[in-house]
Design a binder for these strands. Structure first.
Lengths: 207, 207
DNA sequence: TGTGTAAGCAAGTGACTACTTGCATCCCGC
DNA sequence: GCGGGATGCAAGTAGTCACTTGCTTACACA
């Protein structure tokens, strides 16, 4: 019950540092402050443990994007900032998961939940912007979404290794990518008043 | 002499599939069709082998970008296409290298050569576009370069795992990202004649 | 007070790891 | 034809891996 959680948390930490092959049951047990045998009694095998740990770390709720865009610059910027922060906090584990994905796809498929959700949310928002007539250029929402998310993803994964190829300062990067994207799709600054301020996810919850 | 190359090639293949810890000397020897002892006689240790293999795979010449932009749309598109193709061909080994980078930085630092070079080339080109007055919007070349390269990188790394979040068709993706970027920095289509058609790298060579 | 359940501990299993040693075999240049 | 350097082969070393077994301790509930 309690040792179970300790073990799962320890497994996440060790996996983030050393990947699957480096996550020995001994190391995980030590990190959890638990006897190695307890791992096998609780989870049966190392693989089952890691699978459960992955399921837990990769199930996160994303910051919502309004269903009806009102102030695209500030709304998209704060979404991008929360997304890049999410990725930065998890950059180690994401790198390891991506690297294991080919060898153990069923073990890390839970990792694709967040980016899929983020892409869907962003596409929906950009399409709404287009429908509102506020994006004056012709564009494919999926391509635009992939571009912004890709820039954010690469920044979160690569800045630690090559800080000089990414924009400075780090804290403004998400905003700078966002502004560039908005210009690409022809959205100029400025708020438009709307009566509907509900967000997609709160609407779902209240339904 | 010849077995040395066989071993290095085999090491690259095995590493791309299984990473450092999964690249056992036995597996590499089998893949190279060579006795395991030969590896130690030739390279001394597994780590030295992998280091050499990494140095080799990551030293590649990139497609050049003209020093003086003439037809930005076609020039940038073909650069993006060759860059995305480079990354796609090496996606497995790149994923593994990024995942090992924290644990063995000195062993994989050669991997940052290509993206650094690409970023420098692209920045240079975008800055030239700006100086020419062909990019009508204000923008930071480094941010714009990071955005295009990030989109391409994320596409190359992620499409295999989540094909539905990236633009279709795959072969047009690099072009679509490029067009979006050009619009973001305010470059419209069309060629401008220039007398100087030399590229950066050929100029270096002839100097 | 007794019983069941979760945990610790010590020891061990067989497989695999990087790496070494000793010796036989090959081929190339002289 | 002969010496030397590169290779193969068999065996072994010490360590680590995931996982198991048998036994003991601790706590919770009845």
């Amino acid at each position: 019950m309690d040792s179970r959680n300790e073990i799962i948390n320890a497994a996440c930490q060790v996996f983030a540092k050393l990947g699957f092959r480096g996550s020995t049951t001994r190391r995980i047990a030590d990190a959890a402050g638990v006897n190695e045998v307890t791992i096998f009694r609780q989870f049966g095998s190392k693989e089952a443990l890691i699978r459960e740990a992955m399921k837990r770390t990769h199930s996160v709720e994303l910051a919502p994007l309004p269903d009806v865009p009102s102030d695209p610059d500030s709304e998209l910027t704060s979404w991008s900032e929360s997304f890049i922060q999410h990725l930065r906090l998890r950059s180690s584990i994401i790198r390891k998961t991506m690297s294991e994905m080919e060898e153990r796809p069923e073990m890390s498929e839970s990792a694709s939940y967040v980016p899929r959700q983020a892409s869907a949310d962003l596409c929906h928002y950009l399409a709404a912007l287009k429908r509102q007539g506020r994006a004056t250029e012709k564009f494919d929402p999926k391509t635009a979404a992939a571009m912004l998310m890709g820039a954010i993803f690469a920044d979160a994964m690569g800045r630690g290794m090559m800080p000089d190829v990414y924009p400075q300062p780090e804290e403004k990067a998400a905003q700078m990518y966002t502004r560039l994207l908005l210009r690409a799709i022809g959205v100029e600054n400025g708020t438009r008043r709307t009566t509907n301020k509900q967000t997609k996810r709160t609407k779902q919850l209240s339904a």
